[in-house]
Write a protein that binds this DNA or RNA. Structure first.
Length: 423
RNA sequence: GGAGACUUGUCCGAGUGGUUGAAGGAGCACGCCUGGAAAGUGUGUAUACGGGAAACUGUAUCGAGGGUUCGAAUCCCUCAGUCUCCGCCA
């Protein structure tokens, strides 16, 4: 959520930046400013009236104590008159407050100046590429065939148990998941991230905190009986750990990592986009989240990008890093880097990580603040990224590492998997 | 699932309708004392929003939300959570 004071003071700049994100409804900015002005006026009136009522009530108390009952009764009448208009004012105030919140929440985060112009994924900028493109042998096939060949995932039984998009990992496929999870968590904790294992269902307040509610409830599974939501990413419970907290400057940076299954309903899409492990309803992901001082969030971003890049390099996969253009960025992000692994047998790039700086957009909503040495409180900046999402990493490993003998795993996984090759 | 007790500031803890944003203590910060420290002692010690150049000031907040009242931490209702006992399950 954008900060109202900033919008008020920089209305034109806000509009310019929103256009870069291809946000159409710029009138909303003016509407928000108008509502804010109205709100503050109402607040003023309400509070001074309330102040008068409070003072009168105190006087009544004093009069009662002195047994001057008649005078007290007279005061009561006086207060009663104020109360009617106070009620009206309070009602107006609540309405205006709600309208303002409803509107301001629809404004996406402002893009950083480094974000490239553009509207579609085609306009994202490739920052760099790394790893080696494999030379595939003649019998090379896409990962969904390899999964069958080595009996790693039983999609059909997954359908039987739950429905499409719920893979049943099996044998070496299941063990590979466990190996990757363990490796990624170790990699992250070695870099100073504290490991968490959060609840997989969250309540409304938590879903609201990271912005899944109110608008995107459609992408989450909803347990209506208990008003819980299955998490679409560990980012949701993990970032909310610090919701409504004020942290000491010396506690920064806060670095957290968590493995969780992720649940996504996401309708639409068809064809090869959803084949095999390319897009599923339940998948495993390890997330990294940082809460940092606002002045250092961009060096933290660089650090996180380098962290994920190192992890991909260790997996010996061909990858590229994209800086997303304004139109392709998520609602809450100020700048986003996507990591894609080249899936050799499909001849396409698969997104395996997305690292973003949200600046104060999420923390404003969640009221995650910092108390600095001078005693001033200010909003922290939040960042997160995947390190990494498993299904597409598995797809990448299978497709790029396939040989006539089997899938040759990268060295870092050997001890975790207990073997060097899947055959 | 049944019965009961409870939820106050960083922590402990008082407070059952009237200047209570909240006694007292601990902790913490700064100062005095000391060669230095401890002890002692003094002062300070929530958050948000609004007004003000500032000093300061208004409103709200005692688990959350609603209600009664001129006035609620205190009374009523709903919800959440914690603890104890019983039942059930692992």
């Amino acid at each position: 959520m954008l900060q109202i004071n900033y919008i008020r003071q920089h209305a034109d700049l806000v509009k310019t930046k929103l256009s870069k994100k291809h946000f159409a409804d710029l009138g909303l900015v003016d509407q928000v400013i108008a509502l804010d002005e109205q709100l503050r006026k109402l607040k003023n009136e309400t509070e001074s009236l309330q102040s008068a009522v409070n003072a009168a009530s105190k006087e009544i108390g004093v009069l009662m104590a002195k047994k001057e009952l008649e005078a007290a009764e007279a005061k009561k009448l006086e207060v009663a008159q104020h109360k009617t208009s106070l009620q009206q004012l309070n009602q107006q105030l609540a309405d205006t407050e709600k309208r303002l919140l409803d509107d301001i929440i629809k404004l996406p985060n402002l893009p950083n100046d480094d974000v490239p112009d553009g509207k579609t994924p085609a306009e994202n900028v490739v920052v760099r590429t790394g790893g080696e493109m494999p030379t595939l042998y003649d019998g090379a096939t896409p990962h969904w065939d390899l999964i069958k060949k080595y009996d790693l995932v039983d999609f059909e039984t997954g359908v039987k148990l739950t429905g499409s998009g719920f893979p049943l990992y099996k044998g070496k496929g299941a063990k590979l998941q466990r190996a990757l999870i363990q490796y990624f968590l170790d990699f992250n904790t070695t870099a100073g991230y504290t490991e968490y294992l959060p609840p997989l269902m969250v309540n409304e307040a938590t879903a609201y905190g990271t912005g899944q509610l109110p608008d995107k409830e459609g992408q989450m599974y909803h347990v209506t009986e208990d008003k819980f939501y299955l998490i679409p990413t560990a980012e949701v419970p993990v970032t909310n750990i610090y919701r409504d907290e004020i942290v000491k400057e010396t506690d920064l940076p806060i670095k957290m990592t968590a493995y969780t299954p992720c649940f996504r309903r996401e309708a639409g899409s068809f064809g090869s986009d959803v084949r095999g492990l390319n897009r599923v309803h339940q998948f495993d992901k390890i997330e990294i989240v940082q809460l940092v001082h606002p002045e250092t969030s961009y060096s933290t971003l660089d650090e996180m990008v380098a962290h994920v890049e190192k992890l991909l390099q260790s997996l010996e996969l061909p990858y590229r890093i994209l800086r997303l253009c304004g139109g392709d960025m998520s609602f809450a992000s100020a700048i986003t880097y996507d990591f894609e692994v080249f899936s050799a047998a499909q001849q396409k790039w698969l997104e395996v990580s997305s690292v973003s700086n949200f600046e104060a957009f999420q923390t404003n909503r969640m009221k995650i603040r910092l108390k600095d040495a001078s005693g001033k409180t200010q909003l922290l900046h939040s960042l997160n990224g995947s390190s990494l999402a498993l299904p597409r990493i598995v797809a990448g490993l299978l497709e790029n590492k396939q040989t006539a003998e089997g899938i040759v795993l990268p060295k870092v996984l050997h001890s975790y998997f207990g073997a060097a090759i899947i055959m």
